[in-house]
C-alpha cells in the first residue's frame, strides 16, 4: 500500500511538473502534449468505445497466438529435453530463431498471408513458441536427477514419467518460461499491428499507428499508456495467481 502511494505521488509530481512546463511554453505541444490533453483523449476514447474495442481485438489476437505458442512450444520443449536427436535438430533451430526479433517475421508474414489475421497470428506465434520451447527444455534438463531415479524405483516410466514427474517438477521453470513467452507475444503483436494494416479488426497497435499518421500526439501517448496498462494487467491477472500457488506448494519460485 505504501509503495503504491509512493508511486502515485511520483506520478503526480511528474504530471504537475510536465503540465506547468508546457503551460510556460518550454516546448511545442505538437511534439509533446500536456498530460491533461492525453487524459482528455483517453476519456473521450473510453466514452465512444473505440479504446475498449481496440483492446478487445488486441487481446483476442494475443490469447490466440499465445495459446498456439504454448501448444507448440511446450511439447517440443519436452521432446528436446528428452531426446538428443530432437535437441540437435529442433533445439538448435529454436535457439537461432529465438534471437530473431519478432518484427523480422512481418515481411514474410505479409508475403505469405497478405494483410490478414493469419499474418498477425503467425508473427505472434513465431515470437512466442521458441522462447517457451527453450524455457521448457532448460527447466526439464536442470532437474535434479534424483527425481527421475526415485520415480523409476517406484515403477514410473515413459509417458507416466513425462507427465507425472518431469512436467510438474519443471513447472516453476516452465511458468517463468511462459511469462517470458507472454512478454514476447505481447511485443510481437504490437509490432504486427503497427506494420500489418488490416480491415478485420482495429487493435491498439493500429490506433497507435493512425495516431502517428494523423499526427495526433495525444492519441499516440494515450494509446502507449493504454498498452502499458493492458500488459501489466494481463500479466498480473494471468501469472499472479499461478505464481502465488507455486509459492505455496513449492515454497519458492524457481
Amino acid at each position: 500500500m505504501k509503495r503504491a502511494l509512493t508511486f502515485l505521488a511520483f506520478v503526480a509530481v511528474i504530471g504537475i511538473l510536465w503540465e506547468s512546463l508546457v503551460a510556460l511554453g518550454a516546448w511545442r505541444e505538437v511534439l509533446l502534449p500536456r498530460p491533461s490533453s492525453i487524459l482528455r483523449y483517453l476519456a473521450h476514447a473510453f466514452l465512444d468505445g473505440s479504446l475498449a474495442e481496440a483492446a478487445i481485438v488486441t487481446a483476442r489476437r494475443l490469447f490466440m497466438g499465445y495459446a498456439i505458442g504454448i501448444a507448440t512450444g511446450l511439447p517440443l520443449g519436452l521432446l528436446t529435453s528428452r531426446f538428443a536427436i530432437a535437441r540437435d535438430s529442433i533445439g538448435v533451430v529454436a535457439l537461432g530463431l529465438q534471437t530473431l526479433p519478432s518484427v523480422c517475421w512481418v515481411p514474410i508474414a505479409l508475403l505469405w498471408f497478405g494483410q490478414t489475421e493469419a499474418a498477425m497470428l503467425f508473427v505472434v506465434v513465431m515470437g512466442t513458441t521458441w522462447s517457451i520451447l527453450l524455457a521448457t527444455e532448460a527447466g526439464v534438463r536442470s532437474l535434479p536427477p534424483v527425481y527421475l531415479r526415485a520415480a523409476r524405483t517406484m515403477g514410473s516410466k515413459g509417458l507416466h514419467t513425462m507427465f507425472r514427474v518431469l512436467l510438474p517438477a519443471a513447472l516453476p521453470a516452465i511458468v517463468s518460461g511462459l511469462k517470458q513467452g507472454w512478454a514476447f507475444a505481447w511485443r510481437s503483436l504490437m509490432a504486427a499491428e503497427i506494420f500489418v494494416t488490416i480491415l478485420t479488426g482495429f487493435g491498439l497497435g493500429h490506433l497507435l499507428h493512425y495516431g502517428r499518421e494523423l499526427h495526433a500526439m495525444d492519441q499516440v501517448l494515450g494509446v502507449m499508456a493504454m498498452i502499458v496498462a493492458v500488459g501489466l494487467l494481463a500479466e498480473q491477472a494471468l501469472f499472479g495467481p499461478l505464481e502465488r500457488w507455486l509459492r505455496v506448494r513449492w515454497g519458492l519460485l524457481g
Binding site: 514427474v165 510438474p168 506448494r249
Partner: peptide, 10 residues
Amino acid sequence: FQDAALFPWR
C-alpha cells in the same frame, strides 16, 4: 535417498 528426493509438487 540421502536428500529425501520427495516431490515438492505433491
